[in-house]
């Protein structure tokens, strides 16, 4: 039921985009093999996410610098074109290491309301996850966790710190 809805939304989104622009360039990898579309990959703000699988039993391990964080514009969960290469690397790693799962952490800057930022961070994590699903990674291997504004990567109350804090990060679990 849900899957059909997703497919329908995807189809609708594609139709709208192609009608409006004639021939927009598709994202690097195109829709995933299982037919679930990458989200945030087009200029649309839609999330074509599928439901989340059960949480993993083990906590993850964050390896500094292993995957650079995906950065987001202010108040947006859309994955910008220049950030997509980072996700291609993550997807390549996940394809090569089929025994690992991943927790995608969503974060926001300190601007705005804390509780709203918890939802916004989750949406960033979900957008990141759906993009990876679109690249063929099994959604059951990808959990999301939003910290909202509670765990900044950069301290400091300025635009440069905020830019670095609007991000999603990758935590590997065995």
């Amino acid at each position: 039921m849900n899957k059909y809805k997703c497919l329908f939304m995807l189809g609708l989104g594609l139709m709208l985009i192609f009608n409006a622009t004639g021939c927009r360039r598709r994202p690097a990898a195109g829709p995933g093999e299982d037919g679930v579309g990458p989200i945030g990959a087009w200029d649309s703000d839609q999330i074509y996410g599928e439901g989340l699988g059960p949480r993993f039993g083990e906590d993850g391990q964050y390896i500094e610098g292993q995957f650079p964080p995906v950065l987001f514009p202010f108040d947006s969960a859309q994955i910008a074109g220049e950030e997509r290469a980072k996700l291609d690397d993550v997807a390549r790693y996940m394809r090569r290491h089929t025994n690992v799962n991943m927790i995608i952490e969503g974060h926001t800057c300190e601007v705005g309301n804390r509780e709203y930022n918890l939802s916004l961070g989750e949406r960033r994590a979900l957008a990141t996850r759906a993009y990876l699903v679109g690249l063929g990674i099994d959604g059951a291997r990808l959990q999301t966790r939003s910290y909202g504004q509670e765990r900044p990567a950069a301290f400091g109350h300025n635009e440069e710190a905020w830019r670095q804090n609007r991000r999603s990060e990758f935590v590997i679990t065995q």
């Binding site: 996410g49 599928e50 939802s119 979900l126 939003s146």
Partner: peptide, 9 residues
């Protein structure tokens, strides 16, 4: 309550 279990908050 706000949940994202179905793919979106």
């Amino acid at each position: 309550v706000i949940l994202s279990k179905d793919g979106n908050p």
